[in-house]
């Protein structure tokens, strides 16, 4: 299941764990990324709190936790090569995996068509 937030993040659910990244639209708006700060594995995140930071040359942007849960894995490759995120933000450029407190929270998020309409 692929879902999107109004903060321009995407989540792909596999079991009770969601892989999370920034949308292609967000990556396009930010431009070339030069630095990424990822959460720590094991960190407990509450929906809405700053989970990661992505920085372009011109600005730093917070990436908020779209749902509550525990970080199980981070994308070290993206962390060490931030520029690679822009090339495939909704695939190889994922940021972290979150074991959701309640996977049914996904249902409240936008599907691809709704997000495409939102990001217009």
């Amino acid at each position: 299941m692929l879902r999107f937030t109004d903060e321009h993040e995407w989540l792909r659910l596999d079991g009770d764990t969601a892989t999370i990244g920034i949308t292609a639209h967000a990556a396009e708006q930010l431009g070339d990324l030069v630095y990424v700060e990822l959460p720590k594995v094991g960190a407990k995140l509450t929906k809405g709190e700053a989970a990661a930071v992505v920085e372009s040359v011109k600005a730093a942007s917070d990436v908020y936790a779209p749902l509550s849960g525990e970080v199980t894995e981070v994308n070290e490759a993206a962390g060490s090569d931030p520029a690679s995120i822009g090339g495939d933000p909704q695939g190889a450029g994922w940021l972290y995996r979150l074991k959701l407190d309640d996977p049914s929270d996904m249902d409240a998020l936008m599907d691809e068509a709704a997000y495409a309409d939102f990001a217009k």
Partner: peptide
């Protein structure tokens, strides 16, 4: 996410 504040 929030777009950061650009420029000066």
């Amino acid at each position: 996410m929030s777009w950061g504040c650009p420029m000066s």
